[in-house]
Design a binder for these strands. Structure first.
Length: 204
DNA sequence: TGAATGATGCGCT
DNA sequence: GCGCATCATTCAT
């Protein structure tokens, strides 16, 4: 059998229930063909933000210029600027008109690690992309990439998956409203996924 | 080992 | 003017 040529996830993948998409994103590979070279990483932590009824969702107060991509077609990158210095990357999900997205919170660097390290400046390899702000910093993603179509060639997810042996579920991190929803998914065995409190791993 | 805090700029009420 | 889907550093225990 010929080796599998890795395929891109299509728009129909994103055009589904957001929690399903979020769960299925764990273990997938994200590819970014940056001007500095090709970067890839394995996704290990995500969070879902779903609709105007979700008080933590950027669309909670209805459509604005900032969140308009969330109302658009699925399979698009929604990137926003936060806390004066960080960017966060989301994948828009569900049908056009319904605002929802999955926030990428952490990944394991796979290739282009030297570029990630140069963007990040310091830290252990497994920690380079372990956080939504750190991921965008390491990959070099900014508002300039906001709105990129994930079915294009610059930024996309591969169909290929290295599934987690154990997927954890928890409350979302860093929010106040809607904090009780268990809409965070992570690879429980990954060093790059942020662990919480008592689950924190011991040093080796 | 964990809690508190400063950095820093923009969107929105 | 306030609060924010963060992070690194400082401080307390």
């Amino acid at each position: 059998m010929a080796p599998n040529k890795s395929q891109k996830l299509t728009r129909s993948f994103y055009n589904r229930d957001t929690l399903t998409v979020a769960r299925e994103l764990i273990g997938r590979y994200i590819i970014y063909r940056s001007v500095r070279g090709r970067l890839s990483a394995r996704i290990v932590e995500v969070e879902a933000y779903i609709g105007e009824d979700d008080p933590a969702c950027h669309a909670a107060c209805g459509p604005t210029e900032r969140n308009r991509l969330m109302y658009g077609k699925p399979g698009v990158a929604y990137i926003y600027f936060i806390y004066g210095m960080y960017h966060c990357l989301n994948f828009v999900t569900e049908r056009k008109g319904f605002p929802a997205a999955v926030l990428l919170r952490a990944a394991e660097p796979i290739s282009g690690i030297e570029i990630v390290r140069a963007n990040s400046s310091h830290g252990a390899e497994h920690a380079l992309l372990s956080g939504p702000g750190k991921f965008c910093r390491g990959f070099g993603l900014t508002l300039a990439q906001n709105g990129l179509d994930l079915t294009g060639t610059e930024l996309y997810l591969e169909d290929r998956c290295d599934p987690a042996t154990e997927i954890g579920v928890s409350k979302r991190i860093g929010i106040r409203q809607g904090a009780e929803k268990l809409w965070r998914f992570y690879d429980a065995k990954s060093d790059a996924a942020s662990q919480l409190g008592h689950m924190r791993r011991r040093r080796v």
